[in-house]
């Protein structure tokens, strides 16, 4: 991860908000995904990576949307879907985001298989409430609220 990538929690009474800033859109997408997955697996993440019988798989995800926000949301919900449906946790990402007629994301992600009991918290979905991605002088920033 490059310098200038930052993530902080937005206080939300019922749910969880994340505010992410990064020099590039790719970094922004990666940091948001790793941030919410860290919340989901809690402090066990490092232990999970040290499992002796680590089963690793690589998946490709390609998506196009009219806006960066929709693409961002789809990407985050893909990670949550994989975690809660297949119990696979994204640990390494290679992302390419491109803007032509539509906003496009191609991602190659490495996942590790984890035991379901290692998942500490349920995140139902990333929501569109107050969802935003903005350009800043240092790159990009995003805000997203997750339903817990």
């Amino acid at each position: 991860m490059r310098d200038g990538v930052n993530i902080e929690i937005i206080e939300h009474t019922a749910d969880l908000g994340l505010k992410i800033s990064a020099p590039t859109l790719s970094d922004l997408f990666v940091k948001a995904a790793s941030g919410i997955l860290e919340y989901a697996v809690g402090e066990k993440r490092e232990n999970l990576l040290r499992q002796p019988d680590l089963s690793i798989e690589e998946r490709v995800f390609v998506a196009e949307e009219d806006s960066w926000e929709e693409l961002f949301l789809r990407w985050l919900n893909e990670q949550l879907f994989n975690l809660y449906t297949y119990n696979i946790l994204a640990v390494d990402y290679s992302l390419l985001v491109k803007e032509s007629q539509k906003k496009r994301l191609s991602a190659k992600t490495r996942y590790i298989k984890i035991k379901p009991e290692y998942i500490a918290s349920e995140v139902k979905a990333a929501t569109r409430h107050n969802l935003k991605i903005e350009r800043t002088s240092l790159g990009f920033k995003a805000e997203v609220i997750f339903d817990l």
Partner: peptide, 9 residues
Amino acid sequence: IHWGYGFCI
């Protein structure tokens, strides 16, 4: 009542 997403809770 409290802050939700879309509708309040």
